[in-house]
Nucleic acid binder design. Structure first.
Lengths: 338, 338
DNA sequence: TTGAAAGCGCTAACAA
DNA sequence: TTGTTAGCGCTTTCAA
């Protein structure tokens, strides 16, 4: 237990109390340290008595990195993202890292912030999707700093990537709706592009075209619930009457669309129009929505990120890799049975 | 711009290029540093040229703290919490701190983790509600480490606190329901206690009793959507037929209750039973719920936290303070007009 | 206002 | 296996 003593105890204090050298103390606290069990015990005991804790700052000054990992996330207050960040944070901690959270909406933010992170001699950076700070990633490359990109397009060939299979994602969505009997499709497409969302929408449209199914594009401003409501509202009966299946490349969009469809226009879902989302956020399972969707497994995704990170740190020279996370169809109440 | 040079430039390199001493470089990068403008310019220029960045690790070793703030949050994937964390993170960064995120569900996690945080010579700790790591806060006290508690009970008298006015919160909820014409109330109470939620429920019940309104308690296991669904399901018509107003101390609970009430039991809301939530999470505004609720202003809350933190760091000796965040009634579609 | 010198607390290379 | 020694990159007295 810690003592009321004012100054924080250092390895020197522990060394003196244990009757060993400071290096011995250092070794006792280093995972693979070459040290006699007996010595280690003495050190541990003395450390406990003094309430000693290794100073990670000093340690980080000496070693290759400080163990801090920069975690860059936009729209943290969004269901999918908050789940991702939670998992990543847990995974990082479990792997012995410390996540430093950078929440940033505009690319400018990210740059400034990461810039200051770099002074902490961090072990790596993780970028979740959206705002693409290309220049920043180039900085990381220059510094040889490991980078993992989640659901983001490649920037140069630096950085490992973990992406949902967006290509097959859009395709899977199209096939699912068609299999459920939809014959005239619609697709909600946010004007503000994003790697994953735009990718899914694009491949959905391509797949529908290949299948010879007529498809309408409904544009929304962005990816929020409100954006979807407005988009559906603007589309109006003129468009909506022409479709019987709607793909929304995000559950949040799907839920907004659903509310607009049912409540504003009184359109029966899935009776008149079937709706399919993407991600499987918690709210998709809420009884009022009971949204059919394509599931993106966040848990697997996070584990993959951590694995890639760890391996990259162990061997900085290996070529960049890209891992795909699996997708699965979750059939709920907004689509009809096949 | 950074140079391809392999070793990261140090203050020494900058000093040499600028033709000054290392101390001058240090001063140039210290906000209030006593240095001639001309010298500073020379240093800045040299630093830019070399791509120099102050090493925060080395700096933190020297100064009172490293600028890192520990941010402890449970249930990060929950709407309210993710909004809080987003705001806090933004606020901390704006104030020049770096948030280190500790996501932990069990008190044990928190202890281990914070323990390792302490090695980073952090500036302060912020605890969002739930899991109360009392021993930990005592540790902070012993170390003289500033602490801010959000919606948490006091532990000893260490730590500034920011709390919603739970006392008046429950009262406000009771009055709102009664004013809207409810005459037989119900209150959902999670068995697993939590400072804020339990507090609100308690004061709600007290206020209802004072007003002479009969009130039923419906217990749920915990605070999630599913917990509310199950609780309402278990209560059944026997209980539900006896109430015409239901207070749920969390929007998440309210939404779960709403779905159970309407979809499982076909009970009209607000026709037969009015429902009132607490927090005003984003989903409360979604058209399918349109939930009346008591709003907790997360933005104000975060700002208050940052202010308290900053002031405490500036003057570590000031007595602990407690600040209340305002509450307001948001009338939507699950209550009737007065 | 500036520079020289002494640490901050730790790890790592070397020698014993 | 252990201790000695030399830094890691910075800030901060203290003199000048």
């Amino acid at each position: 237990m810690a003592r009321p003593g004012h100054r924080k105890p250092t390895s020197f204090d522990v060394a003196r109390l244990a009757g060993v050298s400071r290096s011995a103390v250092s070794r006792a606290f280093t995972p693979g340290g070459r040290i006699a069990t007996e010595t280690k015990d003495r050190v541990t005991k003395a450390a406990d008595e003094l309430g000693y804790r290794v100073n990670s700052l000093a340690r980080g000054l000496q070693q290759a990195h400080s163990g801090i990992v920069g975690l860059v996330a936009s729209r943290l207050d969004t269901p999918l993202r908050s789940r991702q960040v939670r998992r990543l944070s847990e995974g990082l901690i479990r792997a012995g890292f410390k996540p430093m959270l950078i929440t940033a909406e505009k690319p400018g933010d990210v740059t400034t912030l990461t810039d200051s992170l770099l002074g902490y001699n961090i072990a790596a950076m993780i970028f979740t999707s959206d705002t693409p700070p290309e220049a920043l990633i180039e900085d990381c490359e220059r510094l040889g700093l490991p980078v993992v990109l989640i659901n983001r397009a490649a920037v140069s060939d630096w950085g490992d990537r973990v992406v949902a299979e967006n290509a097959s994602g859009g395709q899977l969505a199209a096939r699912t709706l068609i299999d459920c009997g939809a014959t005239r499709l619609g697709c909600l497409v946010p004007v503000r592009e994003t790697y994953s969302v735009s990718g899914r929408a694009r491949t959905f449209l391509a797949a529908a075209a290949r299948a010879g199914i007529p498809t309408q594009v409904i544009h929304s401003r962005d990816q929020g619930y409100d954006d979807a409501c407005v988009a559906i509202g603007d589309a109006g009966h003129a468009v909506l009457d022409g479709i019987d299946g709607l793909f929304c490349p995000t559950d949040l969009l799907a839920i907004g669309a659903l509310d607009a469809l049912r409540i504003r226009f009184g359109i029966a879902v899935p009776g008149r129009v079937q709706v399919l989302g993407f991600d499987d956020i918690e709210q998709a399972g809420w009884a009022s929505y009971d949204l059919s969707t394509i599931r993106q497994d966040v848990e697997v995704q996070s584990e993959t990120v951590i694995r890639l990170l760890t391996e990259r740190i162990a061997d900085p020279c290996r070529p960049a890799r890209i891992e795909h996370t699996p997708l699965s169809v979750v059939r709920r109440g907004t689509t009809r049975h096949e």
